[in-house]
Amino acid sequence: MNNIFEVKNLQFKYHKNQENVLKGLNFEIKEGEIFGFLGPSGAGKSTTQKIIIKILENYQGKILFKGEDLATYDNQFFEDIGVSFEMPIHFSKMTAMENMTFFQQLYQKKADIEKLMKRVGLWEDKDRMVGEYSKGMKIRLNMVRALLNQPNMLFLDEPTNGLDPTNAKILKDMIREFREAGGTVFITSHIMADIDQLCDRVAFIVNGEIKEIDSPRNLKIRYGQSVVKLEYSENNKIIEKEFPLENLGENKEFINLIKTKNIETIHSGETTLEDIFIKVTGVKLEDESQ
């Protein structure tokens, strides 16, 4: 796969700060992948995203978009990308359809608004003022807004935050379909289950530096324990045993236990992305979502 973005030694400092917010980031986003960008508040996620969608300038380092310096792109760059912000970004005293039509006319390529609105379940409410929409409806409308110009790349900030499981699934399916159609996705979210389900690769940013970057599977193997944990009952007691994965088929005690005992649970020592987030960033996710 070709790289759609290559970020080399990216550094950035806000005028008011003495210290760099970004301290030499290096990563690439491959064409056709879903790339998760994770980290605690203040780690530099938003700043990085603002830079690569060209709304923050004066950075140091190099960013290549499709092999060309990002700084050389003019506003035509925005024909290629779609951005879904975390907060609602619509004119509340206009209907959803008026909002979508207004924004779409600013682009050359145009998606089928009716199809998109139907997909996120908002077609019936298309003539309602956005101010009357619930938070979940506004978030779904954000997704339609991001797809209005048939972009090649999507930037999604907490795309399922505040959605019920049914609507969150619809949005996740849309993100997967976008990837399957050849699109690339850059996503930030604190819902680790979503990241785990969606992302091909994830990067963890802490204090302006990338601490980890790999596929969720590889990270789980690396941070997990190479063991199998099982529980069985004996004399009305639950007994827990742990065995190394290495040469498990030749481990006589393990084979004997599963042959002779009433096994109640059996798990590999694989960890979760949430545990990895806590280990890498040192921050609990419940603190993040507040």
């Binding site: 969608i53 709304i55 506003n75 035509q76 925005f78 024909e79 990308i81 951005v83 912000f85 907060m87 609602p88 970004i89 619509h90 004119f91 509340s92 924004f103 600013l106 682009y107 050359q108 807004r145």
Partner: peptide, 14 residues
């Protein structure tokens, strides 16, 4: 209040 300038920043409009 409605953050609409944010979304205008990511359109081809100068």
């Amino acid at each position: 209040k409605e953050s609409t300038i944010s979304t205008m920043l990511v359109t081809p409009a100068k």
